[in-house]
Simulated assay, not measured.
Amino acid sequence: MNNTENISGRPPQTNFNEAFNNDLDYPRLGNVTFRRGTLTDNQEAMFNENWPQMGKELGDELIDVDAWFGRAGHTTIVEIGSGTGTSTAAMAPLEADTNIIAVELYKPGLAKLMGQAVRNGLDNIRMVRGDGVEVMVRMFEPESLDGIRVFFPDPWPKARHNKRRIIQSGTLNLFASRLKKGGVLHVATDHADYAEWINELVEVEPSLEYKGWPWDGCPQLTDRQVITKFEGKGLDKDHVITEYLWEKK
């Protein structure tokens, strides 16, 4: 796998077109970096105590899901860009038999999710700190996941930044490669221009069958149950929330 130069000891960014021998479009994000943020002393202590069991950093070691969760044969869903984890923590009790892996760059967001998980005894949540696309490439085997969720990704609204959007033809192909047959990809946005962008891509990946929204026969929970902070902001501005579901063929 050919990559760009390693920065600050972290895994170098993947050259996706060379790695997968295609000419599809992938997010162009430059160097893989971690967003900074400050934790309170209590948050830092809680994070340091629980991270060895609940968290992993972006790396090149494949995740052994059964070993990490201490149980075998359970549905596993990865949520990319979990933010502060509001919807993740709200859905987790309703998915007690499902392994939920939240991927996020922002440490305070992971700390908030961890705090909710610890306080409420949510033992089906784990976390990875890193760029979601890199985590998917480096840390999950093909056809290993039952579901992938991308809720309210950054819309990168300026036209010159559209290439940074996570939903691209190449990313959809990558997601599909990591899903088992029958696995589900669930995307939600409250940004009208991003919804138009996604509408142009719903049929672009041949190994994904677009199911629309809602999908009554979906094998996984799709009702996010709570209004996340991003949803609340969108609803306050009378934005329309658009959701998408695909099934791996």
Rank of each mutant, 00 (worst) to 15 (best):
R126F: 02
D238H: 15
G55R: 00
W215H: 14
N15I: 09
V103T: 01
R36S: 15
L172R: 05
G73W: 14
R119Q: 13
G132W: 13
N3I: 05
A192N: 10
G115R: 03
E205L: 05
T86R: 13
T76E: 04
M139E: 00
G212N: 08
E231T: 02
L221N: 10
G37V: 07
G130V: 04
H239M: 15
D64Y: 11
D131Q: 10
N99S: 05
N42F: 05
T14P: 13
C218E: 09
K180D: 01
Q168N: 06
M127I: 04
V118P: 04
V128S: 04
A89C: 13
K249T: 11
L245T: 11
P157G: 04
P108N: 05
D238S: 15
G212F: 13
R164P: 01
P214W: 10
V240W: 15
G73C: 06
D25Q: 14
R160G: 07
Y26A: 03
R126P: 01
D131P: 05
D23E: 07
P219W: 12
N120S: 12
R71I: 10
K211N: 10
T88M: 14
E18N: 12
H74Y: 09
P52L: 02
C218M: 08
L110T: 06
I100K: 01
D190E: 08
E49W: 03
V118D: 07
L39E: 01
V137H: 15
I63G: 06
W68Q: 06
K211E: 11
Q220H: 14
P219D: 02
K211V: 09
F230Y: 15
A111C: 04
T86S: 07
S82R: 02
H191A: 13
V135T: 14
P108D: 10
I148P: 05
M1R: 14
Q43H: 02
A176N: 01
T88Q: 09
I77L: 00
Y26T: 03
T33I: 12
V150W: 09
L62S: 00
M54Y: 13
W51E: 03
L174A: 00
W197R: 00
K112D: 09
Q220E: 12
P155E: 03
I77C: 04
P12K: 07
R224C: 01
W51N: 01
N22S: 11
K249F: 13
N3S: 15
E5Y: 11
L145I: 01
H186F: 15
K112T: 09
R164W: 01
N17K: 08
P153G: 08
G183H: 05
R71G: 11
W213V: 02
G130R: 09
V202Q: 03
T84R: 12
S177K: 00
A67W: 07
D236Y: 10
V65W: 10
R129T: 08
S82Q: 13
W213E: 04
I166G: 04
K233L: 12
C218G: 07
G182W: 12
P153Y: 08
G170C: 04
L105Q: 14
S169K: 11
W68R: 07
F16R: 05
T171C: 01
D131T: 08
E200V: 04
L201E: 01
T84N: 09
